[in-house]
Structures are given as C-alpha cells and as structure tokens.
Amino acid sequence: MASLWQGYLWPGLIIVAQIVAIILPLLGAVAYLTYAERKVLAAMQLRKGPNVVGPFGLLQPLADGLKLLNKETILPSGANPIVFVAAPMLTFVLSLVAWAVIPFDAGVVLADINVGILYLFAISSLGVYGIIMAGWASNSKYPFLGALRSAAQMVSYEVAIGFVIITVLLCVGSLNLSAIVKAQETVWFCVPLLPMFVIFFISALAETNRAPFDLPEAEAELVAGYNVEYSSMTFALFFLGEYANMILMSAMTALLFLGGWLPPIGIPPFTWIPGPLWFAAKVAFVLFLFLWVRATFPRYRYDQLMRLGWKVFLPFSLLWVVVTAGVLVAFDWTPK
C-alpha cells in the first residue's frame, strides 16, 4: 500500500500539478494574445482597439469567452457528427500536449525526453488533422475547400521546417531541447544560421495558417474556411488551439534560434533576470512579429504560396544543410 502511494500515486499527483502549472498560464497567455493582437493591429492602423470592457479593455477576452460559452452548439444535419465534434477537440489537445517537452529554464521541463525536437515536429505535423477532419465532416463546400488548401499548405512547409531543424541539430549534436539551448551559450543560432532563422519564421507563419498565408480561412474567398459550420465551444476550441499553436511555434523559434532561457550576454545586469522571464520575453517578441506581419502584408495567392514552399524554401534549405554540414566537417567544429 505504502509502495503504491510512494511509487505511483504521489509522483502521479506531482505530474498533474506540473501539467496544471503549465496549462493555466498557457490558456491565460492565449486569451491575452487575442487581446494583444487586437491592440497591436489597432495601434498600427491608428485605431483604439478594445477599450470598453474593464480598464484599457483588459477584460475583453473574458467577455468574448463568456459570450461564446452562452451560444448554442449547432450540429449541421448533413454533418458527420462524431468526426465533426472530434476535430476541434483534436486541434485543442494537440496544441496543449506539445508543451510537455518545452524547457522554461535549465531543468524546468515536464518531460526531458531524448527526442524532444522530433516530438515537437511530430505534434505540429499532426495539427493538419483537426483542420482536414473539420472540413470533411462539415459536409459543406467552403470548409472542404479551406481544409484541402490547409492540408497542402501545411504538408509543403513542414518539409522546409524539417530541414531547418536538421541544420540546427547538426550544430548541436543532440535532439534534446535543453541541449539545443545549452549549445547556444556562446552565440545564439540566429546569428550563424540567419537564413534558416528567416525560413523557419516564414514557415511557422504558414504552418499556423497566419497572415500572409491564411488561405485556409481567406474571408474574401471562403467566408471563414474550415470552421464556417462551427459555433460556440466547438469554434472556441479551434480558436484556442490556433492561438496556442502560434505561441508554440514562437516558443520553438525561441528555443532553436534565440537561445531559449539564456540571456543575450552572460554578464550581471542580464543574468539577474531569471531564465523563464527571458524565455517569455523572446516568445512575446516572436509573437509580436507574427502580429506585425499580419498588419503589414497582403495575403499570398495560392500558386505563389506553393511556389515559395517548393521552389524557393525547399532547395535553399537543402543547400544550406549541405553547406552547414560541409563547414562543420571542414573546420572540425562538429559537436562531440
């Protein structure tokens, strides 16, 4: 009995507590990311943005959430009910499980697995299922077109992301995320691998279906794409999943290229700030870039999107993998 408590129940409780400690701030961050998006867009377009609910409109996300909860969940009569309901759940769950391997500070990580970066890549490549299932189960034209676009887009840009990850791995010699951050102690990878950093950021935009690659939900052509038929909480789960994925891709950018929890220079005024704060600041910076891009660029045409993915990013990232490997071997810089 005592061994059951010591061996299974107590560690289980600790893990549950850790999961809650990650997920609650994450959901808060998602809620306030929607607020930040509206405020940043408003500032860039010389408007005020949400400013009515609470001081500076700070309670706006809560009001939006409550409003969504009160709406009726509509199940279209032509829809495939099980797949229709499972799709938003899948999107939401996948956007949360990836956080299990994200290190917030040295040693502060829920599951410090050997193949952390592959796990992240696997989970982000599964994100397409929520969208394609939603589009098919809705049994409606606009969602289906949006889902097909999204599937093609996400599969195309995953290839480029894979090559970027391989380049970083060549410089690190480990698939563990903590090891990847520790390898950046001398210099962040965004300096020696600047082209790959740019490719990764643009591919992250495409992978999360954000502007200027938000073709799956192009309002002007597809009404709202794959989530036209969704309402109330089912829609809210898609929305939360999408924004959680944005934060996840920003966290991946911070871990792979911006040194994770490390300060820019390892000297006192910078080292006084704790690691998780540095990490949060870097994630927030990348998220701001996401919003900035949305406010600045017009949407890509579909054939241009495919051309960029297959004819520009894929050959270039492949070339850069070879160049990086060649340089590492030629100068004997390969990680031991």
């Binding site: 697995i113 592959l118 890549f121």
Partner: peptide, 15 residues
C-alpha cells in the same frame, strides 16, 4: 525505441 516511434508518427501519420 523513442526515435523510431517519433519517426513513425512524423512520416506515416504526419505525411
């Protein structure tokens, strides 16, 4: 065999 598990998910499920 965590490497093969992840590759299985990435290649077969993801693509």
């Amino acid at each position: 065999a965590e490497f093969i598990a992840m590759i299985l998910v990435i290649v077969y499920v993801g693509a």
